[in-house]
Design a protein around this nucleic acid. Structure first.
Length: 446
RNA sequence: GGUCCCAUCGUCCAGAGGUCUAGGACACCGCCCUUUCACGGCGGCGACACGAGUUCAAAUCUCGUUGGGACUGCCA
């Protein structure tokens, strides 16, 4: 019987949930759900200067947006709370005093320092990086190479990261620490403290970093930072989820497009990659498109609505049924919600069509025959449905010495104001016979 | 500088000594499908950083070199 997995995501509320944090949170979540374990959210707000309640909320909102729910956290009390470091000061003081009493720490200049021993081999087996060992004298050093004792309690009474993380992970019974690779170098320092306190250390699994195009740790310069910016850019929660899961990991079955449940079922910490990954927007775009294709259109509609509004489109006069059907008609076109909203604008506004198209593209000599055809289509096509219209058009073209293309293109332009769209009969079908007639009439094609 | 980590197509991943003239995905380029675009299908371009060693056999193991990254805060 192995003990139940307890993992945690411990962000510092000094900013919104950025893509690197989301990646770490995602892998923790995946492992917790995969193993039937517990996912704890702990807020590391010991930096009085930069931490704010707003950022804390923003981080939780970001996680919720991605669909990463936690079992214990500031807003979900559990037996290991409180879940905010600023509310656990007594704990840090208690153990600091213990270290002082044991002569393993001392007070100086109002701060408390942990004594770093020399000549001790510190080693651990990282679940993804393997065996790592460092000599204690190298764990924390000054510029001149001498050992540097570790500050555990700052002058302002708050604990430092390397100390608080140990006390919390131990007291919260976290048995698997999954975090970014940038922390692997901090691990030896923490192990020293675990050891001094006689705590059993958890397992560690460090995750590869996510790099920007410049191959450097992702920074604000690389564009979007907060996961919400990805929302604003047109990405679906599932798109970001799927994309991020593929950074440093890939399912055994080779499938790259998957649902949350599939990811959970297939996730393996042991198959996480060591190499830092460069974030590739093209791939995100592709995955996002695939996720939009498989998403239930009723649900997608609710996500698209705000994007239509952003374009100044008023969809209030239409039913959700008509709108989601319109999205379905788009047939997977568009890689982002922004594109999908834009590409489908003619389904909710004829004004946008008129604003970008005035029928001047049509060869004047062809107008008579076009009028004749469109009138016939409106009046005589028995069923206003894609294949019926196509068959009607094909036959008419044959009988009147015209071609499909000659008849279809002007219709597309008039209906959508664009040269590119889904199948024109699909568009006409979705718009309805009356609306189609109205638009053709406006352009004097009927 | 020091410590630690990493190293397969431009990018993300497969590959855990022979089945690798290295596989998939994205991007890119052709062709097909087609009323346009997208989707889809087919094909192309394109990588084991380098050097030693171990072995009958190395992308896979070892060492070194080179390159890249992280950390080096009383930030986390």
């Amino acid at each position: 019987m192995t003990e139940k997995i307890r993992v945690r995501f411990a962000p510092s509320p000094t900013g919104s949930l950025h893509i690197g944090g989301a990646h770490t949170a995602l892998f923790n979540w995946l492992w917790a759900r995969r193993s039937g374990g517990t996912f704890v959210l702990r807020i590391e707000d010991t930096d009085r200067e930069r931490s704010t309640p707003e950022y804390e909320q923003s981080i939780m909102d970001g996680m919720k947006w991605m669909g990463l729910d936690w079992d214990e956290g500031p807003d979900k009390p559990g037996e290991y709370g409180p879940y905010r470091q600023s509310e656990r000061i007594d704990l840090y003081n208690k153990y600091a005093q213990l270290l002082i009493d044991n002569n393993q720490a001392y007070e100086l200049d109002g701060a408390i320092f942990f004594k770093v021993p020399a000549g001790k081999k510190i080693e651990f087996d990282d679940m993804v990086y393997g065996h790592i060992e460092v000599m204690s004298e190298n764990a924390s050093v000054n510029q001149d190479g001498t050992i540097k004792d570790i500050v555990i309690i700052k002058k302002d009474g708050m604990p430092t990261y390397n100390y608080a993380v140990v006390i919390d992970d131990f007291t919260m019974n976290i048995n698997t620490v999954i975090r970014g690779e940038d922390h692997i170098i901090n691990t030896p320092k923490q192990l020293l403290i675990y050891d001094a306190l006689g705590f059993k250390a958890p397992k560690f699994a460090h995750l590869p970093m996510i790099l920007g195009k410049n191959k450097k740790k992702l920074s604000k310069r690389d564009g979007a930072t907060s996961v919400f910016e990805y929302h604003d850019l047109g990405y679906l929660p599932n798109g970001v989820f799927n994309f991020l899961a593929l950074l440093g990991w890939s399912p055994k079955n080779g499938e790259e497009i998957f649902t949350r449940d599939e990811a959970v079922a297939l996730f393996e910490l042991s198959s996480v990659t060591k190499k830092a990954a460069v974030l590739d927007i093209d791939k995100l775009n592709h995955i996002n498109q695939e996720q939009m294709k498989v998403m239930d259109k009723t649900k997608l509609l609710e996500i698209i609505k705000p994007f239509w509004s952003n374009l100044g489109l008023d969809f209030s006069q239409y039913t959700d049924s008509y709108l989601s059907s319109s999205l379905k008609t788009m047939g997977g076109r568009g890689q982002t919600t922004i594109q999908l909203a834009e590409f489908s604008d003619y389904f909710i506004s004829f004004d946008v069509v008129k604003s970008r198209y005035d029928a001047s593209e049509i060869d004047g000599e062809r107008i008579p025959i076009l009028k004749k055809f469109y009138k016939a289509l409106i009046d005589d096509c028995s069923v206003w449905e894609h294949s019926a219209m196509e068959e009607f058009t094909r036959n008419w073209a044959l009988e009147n010495g015209s071609t499909m293309k000659e008849l279809a293109m002007p219709l597309r332009w008039s209906l959508t104001g664009r040269k590119v769209s889904p199948g024109v009969f699909d568009v006409a079908s979705q718009l309805g016979r009356e609306e189609t007639k109205k638009r053709l009439t406006h352009f004097n094609l009927i």
